[in-house]
Amino acid sequence: MVDEIAAKGIHVCPAASPDWRGFAQRFGAERAETMFGGLRSMRERGVSLITGTDAGVSSAVFDDFVSSLEFFAHLGCTPPEIVDLATQRTAEALGLTDTGTLIPGHRADLLVVRGDPLRDLQALRAVRLVMAAGRVHR
């Protein structure tokens, strides 16, 4: 089944909660690692993972997307892979053709941070500027 998902180019969004570490504590490390290991195996077998939240689920929190991204590091993704899957790969999976990369003709969606998120995802916590469709948001 996993190989078929990969072969068909089906994207998988685990909707990683910012509290994924707390989940592991509540349900036990062994049970959590069984579930996390399934996603790790999917990634290793070529399944395209994308980012997203569990918006709409009662009691879900959405205020720490960087922690959600750190889940992908736990699965073995490098910071450059994580930035790519959170931008270009997720945009492509959703059929958004005018965003996800910084090239002429695209929307000019920017997140400017202090530091280098390609080395350390924690840089994403030091937001300096947010621009959507070429307009600055405060």
Rank of each mutant, 00 (worst) to 15 (best):
T97P: 03
H11R: 08
A86D: 02
S58E: 14
I50K: 01
L124Q: 00
P14F: 02
V113A: 07
V113P: 06
F36G: 06
A73M: 15
G22D: 10
S67D: 09
A133D: 14
R26N: 05
G134R: 04
L49I: 09
L39C: 01
T90S: 10
R138M: 12
G134W: 04
L110E: 10
D84F: 11
T87W: 02
D116H: 03
P80T: 00
I10R: 12
F27Q: 06
A73R: 15
L118P: 00
S41E: 13
T99K: 15
I103R: 15
M35N: 04
A55H: 04
D19F: 11
I82A: 03
K8Q: 14
I5Q: 06
V61F: 13
R26L: 06
G95D: 05
S67N: 06
L85D: 08
S59L: 13
G100F: 06
R125T: 00
I50A: 04
A16E: 02
E44Y: 03
R119V: 09
D109M: 08
G134D: 06
V130G: 03
S41Y: 08
R43Y: 13
L118S: 01
A24S: 12
E44P: 04
R128D: 06
V83F: 09
W20K: 01
D3E: 15
P80I: 00
T53G: 14
R128W: 03
H137E: 14
R128K: 11
D98G: 11
G28P: 01
A24N: 01
A16I: 00
E33G: 13
A32G: 10
R107W: 09
I82W: 02
P79L: 06
